[in-house]
């Protein structure tokens, strides 16, 4: 554990809690892509199956459980409890365009051709693109509430901090996970455009982020 990794995990947790509390307190999921949230629940489910096979540390186990519970709770709020506020009209990204290639790639490129390894690889690849329905929705409606942009900022920051963590681990431990690093770079690139808009419009302006 190094400072980048810890900051990355905290940033990830903050992002998920911001989104959950936003929906919970406002009793509305307007502007939130339910599809992205289902994909993230799928990411955690397929990655954390190792909860049943290996024990790393109490920190590791607790964080995995928290991510799983919060991701399913968020999906529940969007599709069940506050489904009246769900904007299915604008959440029209075709997730099969992500799921099919990601599944195919996980079978082709993995560390071992075993169910757990393929599912782990699937989760890493899927996470890299899971935010696309949300970004698509913002592009389509042309705006995002500032609290939604704070969520996206911390979610993007998390993987960027993991990149720093991997650079650190490479130099101190000689650790290099090609699948995670390449996907992590791709994932972070997807947020770059958003980071720019976040700094120039949300932080310097106020209220909603509207696209030109």
């Amino acid at each position: 554990m190094n400072i980048f990794r810890l900051a990355g995990d905290v940033s990830h947790l903050v992002a998920i809690i911001i989104l959950f509390l936003k929906i919970w307190k406002s009793k509305s999921c307007a502007g939130i892509s339910g599809k992205s949230q289902v994909l993230f629940a799928l990411v955690f489910t397929s990655r954390y199956l190792d909860l049943f096979t290996v024990f790393i540390s109490a920190y590791n186990t607790i964080m995995k459980l928290v991510f799983l519970v919060l991701s399913y709770a968020t999906v529940y709020l969007i599709y069940m409890r506050f489904r009246g506020s769900y904007d299915s009209e604008n959440d029209s990204f075709r997730v099969e365009f992500l799921l099919v290639p990601v599944t195919g790639l996980a079978f082709l490129e993995n560390y071992a051709f075993t169910p757990l390894e393929i599912l782990w690889t699937f989760s890493i690849f899927l996470e890299a693109v899971a935010i696309m329905p949300q970004l698509f929705m913002i592009t389509k409606t042309g705006e995002a509430e500032s609290i939604t942009t704070h969520y996206l900022f911390f979610l993007g920051l998390y993987r960027a901090l993991y990149l720093a963590n991997w650079v650190w681990r490479y130099h101190t431990e000689g650790f290099f996970d090609q699948i995670a690093v390449v996907s992590g770079v791709v994932q972070t690139i997807f947020y770059c455009d958003f980071f720019y808009l976040y700094v120039t419009r949300v932080l310097r302006g106020s209220g909603k982020m509207s696209l030109p």
Binding site: D50, V54, S57, F67, Y111, A112, W120, Y162, D177, A180
Partner: peptide, 10 residues
Amino acid sequence: VIGRTRHDEL
């Protein structure tokens, strides 16, 4: 070991 090192990340 590849798996063990990798699974310590979230």
